[in-house]
Computed example of a mutant assay.
Amino acid sequence: MKALTVVPGRAGSIELSERPDPEPGTDQLLVDGLALGVCGTDKEIAAGEYGWAPSGSDRLILGHESLGRVRQAPADSGFAAGDLIAGVVRRPDPEPCGACARGEFDMCRNGKYTERGIKERDGYGSQSWVVEPEYAVKLDPNLERVGVLMEPTSVVAKAWEQIRLIGERSWFEPKTALITGAGPIGLLAAMIGVQRGLDVHVLDRVTSGPKPDLVARLGATYHSGTVADVAKQLAPDVILEATGVGQLVFDAMNGTGGYGIVCLTGVSTAGRTLDVDAGAINRQMVLENDVVVGSVNANLRHYTLAAQALAKADPAWLNGLITRRVPIEQFQDAFTARDDDVKVVIALDESQQ
Rank of each mutant, 00 (worst) to 15 (best):
G9L: 04
A11D: 08
G12K: 14
I14A: 14
E18T: 15
T26R: 15
G37H: 14
G37L: 10
G40I: 05
A46W: 01
A46Y: 06
Y50I: 05
Y50R: 00
W52V: 15
S57C: 07
D58S: 11
I61N: 14
H64R: 01
L67D: 00
A75S: 12
G78A: 09
R90A: 08
P94D: 11
C97V: 04
C97T: 05
G98W: 01
G98N: 05
G103D: 03
R109A: 03
N110W: 14
Y113G: 00
R116M: 00
I118Y: 03
E120A: 13
R121M: 15
R121Q: 12
P133M: 04
V137Y: 11
V148C: 01
W160R: 07
E161L: 07
R164T: 15
L165W: 08
I166H: 13
I166T: 13
R169Y: 06
K175I: 06
A177C: 05
A177R: 00
L178P: 02
L178N: 05
G181P: 00
P184W: 00
G186Y: 02
A189S: 09
A190K: 01
G193Q: 06
Q195P: 01
R196E: 09
D199L: 01
P210F: 09
P210C: 15
G219M: 11
A220T: 01
T221C: 12
Q233W: 04
A242G: 10
G246N: 11
M253H: 11
N254C: 15
G258Y: 11
V262P: 03
S268M: 05
T269N: 11
V276S: 02
V276D: 04
A280P: 06
I281K: 07
D290A: 14
G294K: 02
V296S: 06
N297H: 12
N299M: 02
A306F: 04
A307D: 03
A316Q: 13
W317I: 06
V326I: 15
P327G: 04
P327K: 02
A334N: 03
T336W: 05
D339C: 07
V342F: 13
V344R: 08
A347S: 14
L348Q: 03
